[in-house]
Nucleic acid binder design. Sequence first.
RNA 1: GCCGGUGUGGCGGAAUUGGUAGACGCAUCUGACUCAAAAUCAGACGCCAAAAGCGUGGGGGUUCGAGUCCCUCCACCGGCACCA
Length: 865
Amino acid sequence: MHETYEPALVEAAAQRYWDDTGTFRAVEDESRPKYYCLSMFPYPSGRLHMGHVRNYTIGDVISRYMRMQGRNVLQPMGWDAFGLPAENAAIANNLPPAQWTYENIATMKRQLKALGFGLDWDREVTTCKPDYYRWNQWLFLRMLESGVAYQKTGTVNWDPVDKTVLANEQVIDGHGWRTGALIEKREIPMYYLAITRYAQELLDDVQQLEGWPERVRTMQANWIGRSEGVTIAFPYQLQGAQGALKVFTTRADTVMGVTFVVVAAEHPLATHAAVSNAALAAFIDECKRGSVMEADLATMEKKGLPTGLAVTHPLTGAAVPVWVGNYVLMNYGEGAVMGVPAHDERDFAFAKKYDLPIQQVIDIAGQAYCMDGWQAWYADKGICTASGPYNGLDHQAACAQIATDLEAKGCGALQVQWRLRDWGISRQRYWGCPIPLIHCPACGVVPVPEKDLPVVLPDDLVPDGSGNPLQRYAPFVDCLCPKCGVAARRETDTMDTFVDSSWYFLRYASAGQDRAMVDGRVNYWLPADQYIGGIEHAILHLLYSRFWTKVMRDMGLVDLGEPFSNLLTQGMVRNAIYFRKPASGRVVYYNPTEVEVQTDDKGAPISARLKADGAPVESGGIGTMSKSKNNGVDPQSFIDRYGADTARLFMMFAAPPELSLDWSDEGAEGAFRFLKRLWKAVHTHVSAGAVMALDRATLTVADKDLRRLAHQTLAKVGDDYGRRRTFNTAIAAVMELLNAVSRHEATAPAARAVVHEALELAVTMLSPVVPHVTHTLWQALGHERAIVDEPWPAVDAEALQQEALTLVVQVNGKLRGQITVAVDADETCVRELALADPTVQRFVGALTVRKVIVVKGKLVNVVVA
RNA sequence: GCCGGUGUGGCGGAAUUGGUAGACGCAUCUGACUCAAAAUCAGACGCCAAAAGCGUGGGGGUUCGAGUCCCUCCACCGGCACCA
């Protein structure tokens, strides 16, 4: 063994051993309990970032720990390789997205290997390869047959200069990111997946997923958004024809307070009214240009214009004016809402702004309604008032009665409404999975026959930002109709990349299968025992994957209904932000490595300046590592300097996995120091020669204390890895153990044996986190078998035994002293010892002892007055 | 705006079921070693001059006892359906 820790040597040796022995190749084995540890696969953006390092280290620690627990572990990896950044890079570099993507994959794969993750690379999945995406296409066609996939129009951002559809992130303040042109909303035909068919099941099942964080389950349930209410029809006459304007409400009990209705700009009534009303037509145009994003919709100024039309209140027969509003969306519900200004905050503001009548119809005992301003209780459920036959009814009774009455008139029905909308998967983009359809002038839309799959995406085109290059590429577009044989046009829209990521975890389990999407191996490995990824995927990706799995189940392709048993959502990796804001021009961000921080004599930062010119820079606090803030740390240069183990150790030690993690050069340095200390401790110990077998009879009190600590630590670390998933506290516990080992006088043979055991346990406990250095240290401690193949050690119950306990004594809840008692001391004895303590005596003084609370094994609280 | 989360020393965090607040690490300070520096090792380290007192974002409450439970307010972060 070397005297000094040299990570480069140690890491190369361990990785060579794992490669040569095929350690991480997973083989199905019905006789052993499996463990499928899944991490969200990366988008191949160029190089790994610290977020990846964190994500995959968590997965690797869990995988290696479960392997030591005797589980047959599968830990695969792949590439979410389609998507917009490749097109942006193509525009910038004039290179095909495929080339950029495959180069990035090669780089990142090398980095993943350098980090020592125990991945089974034989199962690698790359979503931009035809052998993967052909099954997207295959399943899409099956979904079309079953009606899960269907066509309808959808709204997109249209850049009139580039004549292209933009993603939301490419629209900045309503203008195109490249052209600056004012973006228009356009309605185009698109394909949708009927996720709403599964709404109830997705909602019911998410409540059962006990291995998921409560917050993610709540977010999903809110997103699905089941609400029970009533659809109400407001009849109207228009050009002699009878019609009905439909709205949905969960507050049917307030229907007697309706004083107006608001329809979306695209609503047929709005279109009709605009024909003879230029101002209204202009307003509708303005609305159509507005954002479709929920966040914008919620915060923008609510505006409206009357149509001049009126509908009839179905219960009172009163005429209700119809308005057009910029905050009502055609795609949500019925594209119209009823206005009850007295009991809805948004309607109240709208009515105040446009001077519409406000009619209170709900009474809350002890509250007085006042029209001057909105108060929170106006929206509460109460007793109906000024509501004719419904007066005196509470919310539930009024809703039921009103629904019955509306139903009798043919003007309403009870309904369950979902916030969840069907999933639009069409993208007007090149770098994605082609939608396997052909447009025939005679037959219409014709699916590509199964034998012709996959529809291969040409991978040498270079997008230039103006439209989808597939549309101009004849070899792709020109085809023959599979039905009638005439010249036809291939669909050029591609699929949302969320499709690719909705089932890759099934494909890992069916690696190499070229005759089917999945095979029986899926039912061995799935569901994933642990899924790990960023909290930013808490809703969409996870919901789509759950939906996709259920669709495949209903087609008989898999047996499971939920793909992920346990979910761990890891926090962001953050770093300090420094910038300068010149009087003119834009803000310049400086990487923290370029900045020097001045501190006061307690170490608190007071100012910062740029190393290059010595002039001050401003601090922007701490933020998520990003290109735009220039505060990223490149894992590669860090690994080159300190090694993979230090990177892994710091990532696991600096914060619990669910919280955000702040990068710290000094902290990472500290992790490196700890590994050097560990190395030195083992080196010093083995250099001192052979060790006797542990003889429990010859141990001193100090030896017994160290043994107890070692086994207590073992129990804690196992619990932290397995149940709690708090790697930071596990590492801290091993650090404490190592501190105790280095303080231990180890010259006597028995003491050396205890130290040997403690070091073996420390090395074993750390091996999931720092597998390279522990691989070498385990050999140095005299073991033939590699540590990666060792089982997790058992706690020695005898080592945990102790004779005396220290209890704390409080007076009125404040810590005043400590007493040492025998483990089996009874309450009376503990109580007397506590009262006899001199400090306790001093604080009790002349006061009367009211009671004494004894918490077994913990503390005594003397209550005085 | 809506939904979800977070808030504890100079910093990251610990306190697992309501029971010793600040484990472990970083920074800082002191000392040892050194011609010197680095590295390493030892010690100190919530605030306050203080045995007392105060202290877990602010305010209020429940309790013998609250970082932990309840109410309320504030700040920051994630998601909001075409970024992935």
